[in-house]
Design a protein around this nucleic acid. Structure first.
Length: 301
DNA sequence: TGAATTTGACCGTC
DNA sequence: GACGGTCAAATTCA
């Protein structure tokens, strides 16, 4: 497994060196794809061996609620352990946008972390019973990067993910990729450091690139003591006036740590589905994502 | 006014 | 008892 990780890292580096060659890039993309599948398969096998994974999820289901608990039934069906057991993928990226519509349902200060963790569920959790979730936390060591944990896969058909694409330049549509840059003048997407244990990513752009804000709902900024801290928020379909306004504001006030998600505005759309992401399937645009290595801290393998 | 976000409280796990 | 995850009322936004 470790060797596979290294191989994936090396392939990602190679991808960067071959940026001028679309064909080569596509080939490396396929290599990474294959490696990811292998890792995923090995992980599944390991999980099957352990055999106890599903139990805790069952035990967690229906854990007691609070406000309405006194009345008996409770809608709460998840707990921390379930999040660790279901298909969980953690990536370190600089742009949390992934083309899916997320709804924020909580935020929590985490012990020994400078930044809070935001909790999102799929917008279609109820209307389409989509169980996908994600958790986003700004990295302590790299304030511009986010650690995003995806839990579960999308079973919904999210309109936002298949929204019409508007290209500024035909070249923005990378061959062999479903990810499309919206950055003006072909501004290259941030070189995201991608730490992954399995399957997905999103991206983050330059804080000063206000144009990148287009298409996303602005994220609220909290004025903390001495610095602004971001509050992660969900994204909404592109083209809203609010997004344009946020873009203008971001451009006008380049505060040091305004590095909220707003500023990380998304360079692309991910046109695939989360189902694909279980094994990197067409998920990473390797032109935009520098896969630097796997997170050694993860214990998912 | 409806939808999305914020935030304090509650719960289960460790 | 601390901590992370979730709920849901209150608040904000469009």
């Amino acid at each position: 497994m470790e060797d596979m990780r290294k191989g994936q890292e090396f392939a990602a580096r190679l991808q960067g060196l071959l940026a001028d060659s679309p064909d080569a890039g596509r080939l490396v993309d396929q290599i990474l794809h294959a490696m990811s599948r292998t890792i995923e398969t090995a992980r599944a096998a390991a999980a099957a061996e352990e055999g106890s994974e599903g139990q805790s999820e069952v035990t967690c289901a229906g854990t007691g609620g609070k406000r309405k608990a006194a009345g008996g039934g409770d809608k709460r069906t998840a707990c921390r352990r379930r999040a660790q057991n279901s298909s969980t993928v953690t990536v370190t990226i600089k742009d949390i946008e992934d083309g899916h519509a997320w709804r924020k349902y909580g935020q929590k200060e985490i012990q020994n972390s400078k930044h809070p963790k935001a909790y999102f569920r799929c917008t279609h959790k109820y209307d389409q019973q989509c169980a996908a979730q994600r958790q986003v936390q700004r990295c302590d060591d790299d304030p511009e990067a986010f650690r995003v944990t995806y839990i579960g896969t999308h079973t919904c058909r999210d309109p936002a993910a298949v929204a019409p694409l508007v290209l500024h330049d035909a070249d923005e549509l990378h061959a062999g990729s479903r990810l499309i840059s919206f950055a003006p003048n072909n501004a290259s997407a941030a070189t995201a450091s991608t730490t992954t244990t399995g399957n997905t990513s999103s991206q983050h752009g330059d804080h000063k690139d206000a144009a990148l804000l287009a298409g996303l709902r602005p994220l609220k900024l909290e004025a903390g003591a001495g610095e602004q801290e971001e509050v992660l928020s969900s994204l909404t379909p592109a083209g809203s006036p609010a997004a344009a306004e946020a873009a203008r504001n971001a451009a006008a006030t380049p505060s040091p740590d305004q590095g909220d998600v707003t500023s990380g505005l998304q360079h692309f759309y991910y046109g695939g589905s989360f189902d694909d992401m279980a094994a990197f399937d067409d998920t990473f645009d390797l032109d935009d994502l520098g896969v630097l290595g796997f997170d050694q801290g993860q214990d998912e393998f």
